[in-house]
């Protein structure tokens, strides 16, 4: 049901839904829950060197397409692979079994898989920040007006990331490649997440 899907999102501050609330009200509560995180993504984007030089349309288009991916990276640590639990932003921790009963299936498993691979890379705060910037500018290009500018920005950020990653772990040449391989996984996760959202529209 609609309520089940809402309950299962880690960005939902109110997983215990009031049965008296209408779907519209539940949706509004959910929106209020994730709005601060989205605003943080926008603030983060503003600090990416070169991002603010893109046209307003292209900034918004990248953020629309990439916010989920950025949040997935940012909140990957909420997924405890060892304990098989997820901590929601409300602070409540749920077991994998409970989450599956809430309706989280393949998407949840893919999120766990991603989180495990990302944490295995043991990125420094600086690396994680730069990687997150790369994630945002590497998102779907649909609707971008000046693709060349976005590609230039992406190239610059990837070069900076490669330099940083190589400097931090000079003996591990595959580390950068392993990091870049997370990008298509994020795209897949984004698509899976979008499908969930589309099946859940409230007029």
């Amino acid at each position: 049901s609609r309520k089940d899907i809402l309950l299962a999102c880690p960005m939902n501050m109110h997983p215990q839904t009031d049965p008296d609330k209408t779907p519209q009200e539940i949706w509004e509560d959910f929106s209020l829950s994730f709005t601060p995180a989205v605003r943080e993504v926008v603030q983060f984007a503003k600090h990416i060197p070169g991002f603010s030089s893109l046209s307003q349309n292209d900034q918004i288009t990248l953020l629309k397409a990439g916010t989920f991916e950025v949040l997935m990276v940012r909140f990957a640590s909420l997924f405890n692979v060892k304990e098989k639990t997820v901590t929601f932003i409300s602070g409540t921790t749920y077991s994998l079994e409970t989450l599956k009963n809430m309706g989280m299936g393949t998407l949840l498993e893919t999120m766990f898989d991603f989180s495990e691979k990302l944490s295995a890379l043991e990125l420094s705060a600086e690396e994680l920040s730069l990687f997150t910037a790369v994630v945002l500018v590497s998102t779907d290009r649909y609707g971008i007006q000046n693709v060349k500018s976005v590609e230039m920005l992406q190239d610059n950020l990837i070069k900076a990331l490669r330099t940083l990653v190589s400097k931090n772990a000079p003996g591990d040449v595959s580390r950068f490649t392993k990091l870049l391989l997370r990008l298509p996984e994020l795209r897949t996760l984004n698509n899976m997440h979008s499908e969930k959202l589309l099946s859940f529209r409230i007029d």
Partner: peptide
């Protein structure tokens, strides 16, 4: 429509956050 971001009202949140805090203060 078939835009998940619009479905969430994401564009509105992004646009306001991007344009600064003036609109947010007015809310």
């Amino acid at each position: 429509f078939s835009d998940p971001a619009s479905n969430l009202g994401l564009e509105d949140i992004i646009r306001k956050a991007l344009m600064g805090t003036v609109e947010e203060r007015q809310e």
